[in-house]
Design a protein around this nucleic acid. Structure first.
Length: 278
DNA sequence: ATGGCATATCCTATATGA
């Protein structure tokens, strides 16, 4: 089973690229970020034509997330990150697919920092840490992925010098990332490629793609029950080299779900623990 | 310190991204 995360940077402009990628790589699950489109503009029919069921949460102009599943419909669990009813930005989706809980997120960029946008980023991260703690221990296999807008270490960027003041590299952002991982999550790409510079984003400026001046900011995290299933991981870099490409490339894991341990005795309502209804 | 490029919308200008 292949699961990918892909920041499309505008699903209306990116639809041909998205369809080409789906056709060639055939991910079983695709988590998308930055739809930059309202719900009514989501290309449901074209994706269905391509063999994918979908859940999405759009927003005019900015943000927007979706979960695609090949040959099936993802089962919705929640469409917002708990913890702040006043937050109206579409940045979180959670669904069940083939017995797996999949969380798709688009963490705030946070620039410029310091300032209100950076404060929002950190506050959102705190809510994520709280929610992720419950997901981690839910007893279900969970994969949490998306554009985290965090460069975890200086090894995850071509050269940190010109990015030192960027929100993606700030100690506060990285401290949140570390606290999240301290819950036990496995950072799939880094776990499998400990000595390799892996990039998932190359900005549009100064031929950064041509020079492979990239950042690793799109991540896939596995909780304890799911971790033994991890087989492979990588980045579909060819997608970034296409014409009219997003500045992000799809990042993926393959899982062998046959390795899932037998479930502990079933609870009365197993789904509730994943939903974490207050 | 700034801008380079791309996408979006209230579109020949501005906000946002990373």
């Amino acid at each position: 089973m292949k699961i990918a995360t892909y920041n499309v940077n505008g699903i209306k402009s990116r639809l041909p690229n998205l369809l080409a990628w789906l056709a060639r790589e055939q991910p079983d699950v695709a988590c998308l970020q930055e739809l930059k489109a309202e719900d009514g503009s989501f290309p449901r029919a074209q994706l269905e034509e391509a063999g994918y069921g979908a859940l999405w949460k759009g927003q005019r102009s900015w943000n927007g997330v979706a979960i695609l599943a090949r040959g099936t419909d993802p089962v919705p669990v929640r469409n917002e990150l708990p913890g702040d009813p006043s937050d109206d930005q579409s940045r979180y989706l959670e669904a069940a697919v083939n017995g797996l809980v999949v969380a798709c997120l688009y963490l705030p960029n946070g620039n410029p920092q310091p300032g209100p946008k950076f404060a929002y980023k950190l506050a959102w991260f705190e809510r994520l840490i709280t929610h992720a703690d419950g997901l981690y221990g839910s007893g279900h296999p969970v994969l949490m992925c998306g554009d985290f807008n965090v460069v975890p270490t200086d090894f995850d960027i071509y050269n940190p010098r010109s990015w030192k003041k960027d929100a993606l590299l700030q100690p506060e952002s990285r401290a949140c990332w570390e606290r999240l991982l301290a819950q036990g999550w496995v950072d799939a790409l880094r776990h499998q490629h400990p000595d390799e510079a892996v990039f998932t984003f190359w900005d549009y400026f100064r031929q950064h793609w041509e020079h492979n001046s990239g950042l690793r900011i799109d991540h896939l995290l596995l909780n304890r029950p799911l971790a033994p299933c991890l087989v492979a991981s990588g980045v579909d870099r060819w997608v970034r080299g296409e014409t009219k490409a997003s500045d992000h490339a799809p990042t993926w894991v393959t899982l062998d779900l046959a390795r899932l341990k037998k479930k502990a005795p079933a609870r009365k309502t197993p789904a509730r623990s994943a939903r974490q209804i207050p």
